[in-house]
Nucleic acid binder design. Structure first.
Lengths: 226, 226
DNA sequence: TTTTCAATGTGATGTATATCACATTTGTTG
DNA sequence: CAACAAATGTGATATACATCACATTGAAAA
């Protein structure tokens, strides 16, 4: 890939901001940028993993085939690292990542990543912080998945898209009903019923995949209490 | 605390094995060992966290008050770190840890931990690996919690105690029925019914808290499929 | 040793949601 | 533009398990 791409990248991670000019140049030599479209698989569960994946821009679903069904672990929005646990914790992908929109991905050779950890303590520290924050997020999301009832989980998902992904109350859901079920642990029929109920109760505007949050307070209540 | 305690500790972490004599001596100055008995709270959810907790020996439940009820996230067996995510990812404990048996805990000042990360890349690398492995473990446990039915989750818990905690098919459960419910996401009545069913079906021996795995193959099947 | 309290087991009932079936709508392909 | 496939909505039914109530057993405290 073109030299200096990492040097002039405007979507660098917080950790990468701690890399010097030399390090960024070395990174450019061990980093490949690839574009994906909706539905494209970025990496596949059970495949070998020897790269660190960095989403520069776009939206990705991180998903896993569980004992009974597909589960979406997270909707990840660039810029962000994916799959660090699966590359450092094991050598095999424990989950898959699939693009939901046009997505720009950097594949980083793990060896240079390890070099940076070994030689740049600010970089290593930011990676540790990033891993820790991710784990806390997953803990809370898991607890909410386990303990809330379906309407609470669906409400939580709708608010997540509004406040964390699109930053607007009116957006187009980048998921089918089936996928929304995979994200929230419901059947697609139950998702339909809940969305229709929310619409009838005036909590959201609903037109196919177009969602509008009309009563964020009430939706927040439902989300909080299940 | 007595100098050199870390130097001659036989329960050091993999990461700590990479510390030199000087570093271990400095660690001794920023490390306090405390003993806990069953029921003692090691750290509390929502309290400030400025220490890294290292369980030298003993059994601990990591638990969180969720939207509806207590949830046990993990039964942790020494030697192991606890709460690194909660100390690096935030400054507040996101969950609690409570001793289930006599437990030996080291409280390590976070500043020296950060120093080691900054100056000892092998140490930092092992901390990253440890965080990654933990996250993968939690992912799978979460998926299993979400997708398996109650008998599968209870079977999984019984096998976890047999194979990961006690390393024997005959052991005393260190949890009440209520706590086993917190670990598996069931009510205590359902846990009782399932244990009684397993006993009636000859899968386990059951005498109060004394458990004996009689049919590991079948239990493994139930655990796997829910 | 007795009393008290916590833990546990069991039966009955209610609830949330999956599953199944099928019709309708929407998006994609030829 | 029509045909086809995927996505979606809705009704009916089944199931897993929570909840409630209460009796019994075991552990702890007086």
């Amino acid at each position: 890939m073109a030299f200096e791409i990492c040097k002039f990248c405007t979507k660098r991670s917080i950790a990468a901001e701690h890399l010097g000019t030399d390090e960024l140049e070395r990174l450019s030599h061990s980093c490949v940028e690839v574009f994906f479209e909706r539905g494209d698989i970025i990496f596949k569960q059970n495949a070998l993993s020897s790269n660190i994946i960095y989403i520069r821009d776009g939206l990705v679903k991180v998903h896993i085939a569980g004992p009974e069904r597909e589960q979406i672990l997270k909707i990840a929005k660039g810029p962000t690292y994916l799959g660090i646990p699966t590359t450092f914790g094991d050598k095999v992908n424990h989950y898959s990542a699939t693009a939901l929109t046009h997505t720009e991905v950097c594949f980083i050779d793990i060896r240079i990543f390890k070099d940076f950890i070994a030689t740049n303590s600010d970089f290593a520290y930011e990676i540790i912080v990033d891993l820790c924050k991710n784990e806390l997020y997953h803990f809370h999301r898991c607890i909410n998945q386990l303990q809330k009832q379906s309407p609470g989980r669906v409400a939580e998902a709708l608010l997540y898209f509004a406040n964390e992904i699109f930053n607007t109350k009116k957006y187009t859901l980048p998921l089918t009903r089936n996928e929304l079920g995979d994200l929230t642990g419901c059947s697609r029929e139950n998702v339909s019923r809940i969305l229709t109920d929310f619409h009838k109760e005036g909590l959201i505007g609903l037109n196919g995949k177009k969602i509008e949050i009309l009563n964020e307070t009430m939706l927040g209540q439902i989300s909080k209490n299940g």
